[in-house]
């Protein structure tokens, strides 16, 4: 219980600091933010009215408190470019990003876990050098280039896939899949290259423990040894690793949406930066970061429930 409270406190502190940073960064904009947003052709009345609309004439701490309240009530003000509430715009784009990110996560788990077990069982066949080269390559290849390669080699050769744009799930499930699988693969492949080795290490560590020698000497078949005993224990550290992926998958989605012209939150963020639509940028950054921080919190709690030893650290 003490652990959970301490962890909860840390969550609150982190979110508070993240919100202060996100708020403060836009205060240090060189020059007048309203002038920057409207460009050089704006006249004084336009500038004054936008400044009033954004509440920029009030003291900073009042602006911050208002913004934070908006964060929790879902009212983050209006986008300048679209003249629509930031939250409406976000909700419109959310299904695309959520679909890509969750598909990528599923692919990573479905591939990295069996692959890690596979290479762990054949420890002698796959040398460390080869496996770590795969990992290094996965870390080095930029996702946007990998996306283009997948378009060229898979997208162009398999009729099923559409290489750009998005078809909503409500319209056609097959259509949605045809637009989402390649982006999800693009995000998943580098993650798999890095994560399968964690799975392998985790399993190999278990294999050296006494209990494994005992159950082996009892004559249990190797299948049961690996899948029933080792895997159960090895899954604990693996869980944290997969928790940590969320941040990377979300970040990957932001970039990869651009490669496949998917109208998700990433595309919204990038166009809003180009249009200097700062309320929208602030809102997107804040919501994405809170989501990631919260998922990590949940993973930490789950970890401590499964393995109570962690609470003592």
């Amino acid at each position: 219980m003490f652990y959970i409270i301490r962890r909860l406190l840390l969550l609150v502190v982190t979110i508070a600091l993240v919100s202060i940073i996100t708020f403060a960064v836009f205060q240090i904009l060189p020059g007048d933010p309203v002038r920057t947003m409207l460009g050089t052709e704006a006249d004084e009345t336009q500038i004054e009215s936008l400044r009033n609309e954004l509440g920029l004439n009030r003291p900073l701490h009042e602006q911050y408190v208002d913004w934070i309240k908006g964060l929790f009530t879902g009212d983050l003000g209006n986008s300048i470019r679209f003249s629509m509430p930031v939250s409406t715009l976000l909700m419109e784009r959310l299904p695309v990003t959520l679909s890509v990110a969750s598909m990528a996560l599923i692919i990573v788990v479905l591939v990295a876990l069996p692959l890690g077990i596979f290479v762990a069982k054949r420890q002698k066949k796959f040398s460390d050098v080869v496996l770590s080269s795969v990992t290094q390559l996965g870390m080095a290849i930029p996702s946007f280039w990998l996306g283009m390669i997948l378009i060229l080699y898979i997208g162009m050769n398999v009729d099923f896939f559409k290489i750009s744009g998005y078809i909503p799930w409500s319209e056609s499930i097959k259509g949605a899949l045809s637009t989402l699988i390649l982006p999800a693969l693009t995000i998943a492949i580098p993650q798999i290259a890095v994560k399968f080795r964690y799975v392998r290490t985790s399993i190999l560590e278990q294999m050296q423990l006494d209990y494994v020698r005992t159950i082996r000497s009892k004559g249990l078949p190797e299948k049961i040894v690996v899948y029933k005993h080792i895997l159960k224990n090895a899954l604990i550290p693996i869980l944290t690793i997969f928790g940590l992926i969320t941040a990377e998958v979300v970040a990957g989605t932001i970039i990869v949406e651009q490669v496949f012209a998917l109208p998700g939150i990433g595309q919204l963020l990038i166009t809003s930066i180009s249009y200097r639509d700062f309320p929208l940028v602030q809102g997107i950054v804040m919501y994405i970061t809170i989501t990631v921080v919260f998922i990590n919190f949940v993973v930490d709690i789950l970890y401590s429930v499964i393995d109570p030893r962690i609470r003592l650290r």
């Binding site: 993240v18 960064v25 950054v285």
Partner: peptide
């Protein structure tokens, strides 16, 4: 260090995008 933690809580590319926006 809490401040550093908060900076690390942002997914890297998101923080980068926010900073170049400014």
């Amino acid at each position: 260090m809490r401040f550093m933690d908060a900076l690390m809580a942002f997914p890297g590319i998101i923080l980068a995008l926010m900073l170049v926006a400014v």
